[in-house]
Amino acid sequence: MLVLAVDTATPAVTAGVVELTADAVLLRAARVEHDARKHAELLMPAVQAVCGDAGTPLGSLDAVVVGTGPGPFTGLRVGMVTAAALGDALGVPVHGVCSLDAIAVDAAGEGPLLVVTDARRREVYWAAYDAGGSRVDGPHVQAPATVAERARELGAVAAAGGSAGLVGLPVRPPQSPSPTGLVAVAASALRAGAAPEPLEPLYLRRPDAVEPGARKRVSA
């Protein structure tokens, strides 16, 4: 099975073609570019590039996997809308996965782990994982000092993700989701041929824009 994996939940714009077999997740091609302000400009050229590198036309893909965050509104929407549009055009299923879970797949090892990424506004997105990479808490959005205190309570021994250095733990790679990490999170559903759940972005914050209130009366 050939799977396109994309993620725009972090400053990295990630795209890759991954071969999923009965017992392995194999990378065919990947492109990762770091620019938090150019997700829309960079993603589709990256998708076309990885398909070319892998010798896999878009029409040969069997599924799409996309990171659903948590992440900032604008960047996250780029990846999810692109994945949904490709799935619709190609007639293939689109599976959404938590982007922090994908980082945890690559970072899992000795002891409990935190995955921490930039949420802006002096806050971070984070989730906690056991040594096998299974999520046990989160995702949340909080100040780094609060996360550091929670890390001690959870007994975390390391942190991964782009903001891992803010919580006082030894830092492990990667900083952003890899194509193989994204597909590994969805692997059981893909292998089983399960219908994907509706795509739901993990914003964790309410949007800044609000509906305007009633007009104020102007006295004569």
Rank of each mutant, 00 (worst) to 15 (best):
V218A: 07
E19F: 02
L42G: 08
A156I: 02
R206E: 14
A108G: 11
T14F: 00
R215I: 00
Q142C: 03
P179W: 11
A151E: 05
A189P: 05
G87L: 02
R215H: 08
A40Q: 12
D62P: 04
V18T: 11
V66E: 07
A209G: 11
T14A: 10
M80Q: 12
D53F: 05
R31I: 10
K38W: 08
D130V: 03
V124D: 11
V81F: 03
E19H: 01
L182N: 12
A84M: 00
D101H: 02
G162C: 09
D208W: 07
F73Q: 12
R206Y: 10
A5M: 13
A159K: 02
G96I: 03
E197Q: 14
V47R: 10
E149P: 02
T8Y: 13
E123W: 02
L4E: 14
D130F: 02
R150S: 14
A164S: 03
P196L: 00
D35P: 09
A89H: 01
V210W: 06
A160Y: 04
E197H: 10
R217Q: 11
V147R: 09
A12V: 05
V157H: 01
G161Y: 04
G16M: 07
P57H: 05
E123L: 10
P144H: 12
V32M: 12
G52E: 13
L114K: 10
R205S: 04
G52N: 08
A186G: 07
A194H: 09
V78P: 15
L90C: 06
G165C: 01
L20H: 09
L20V: 15
R205P: 07
L204V: 01
G168E: 05
V13A: 08
A148E: 14
K38H: 14
G59K: 02
L26Y: 01
A151T: 09
A30K: 10
G52I: 03
E110F: 07
P45A: 04
R135T: 01
A84D: 15
E211D: 15
D88G: 07
P144N: 04
P174D: 13
L86G: 06
G52V: 00
L42M: 14
D130G: 06
V141G: 00
A83L: 03
V65Y: 11
L190W: 11
V50R: 06
W126K: 06
G213Q: 00
L4A: 02
L26N: 15
L86K: 13
S188T: 08
V210C: 04
V183W: 15
A12D: 04
D23K: 14
L20M: 10
G75P: 13
V157T: 15
P177E: 04
L26K: 12
C51M: 04
L4Q: 15
V18A: 04
D7F: 11
E200M: 09
L202F: 01
V17G: 05
S60A: 14
L86P: 09
A164D: 05
A164Q: 09
S176C: 05
A49T: 07
Y203T: 08
Y129H: 00
G96R: 09
G67F: 06
A15V: 07
L58D: 00
P144C: 12
D53Y: 04
Q142R: 13
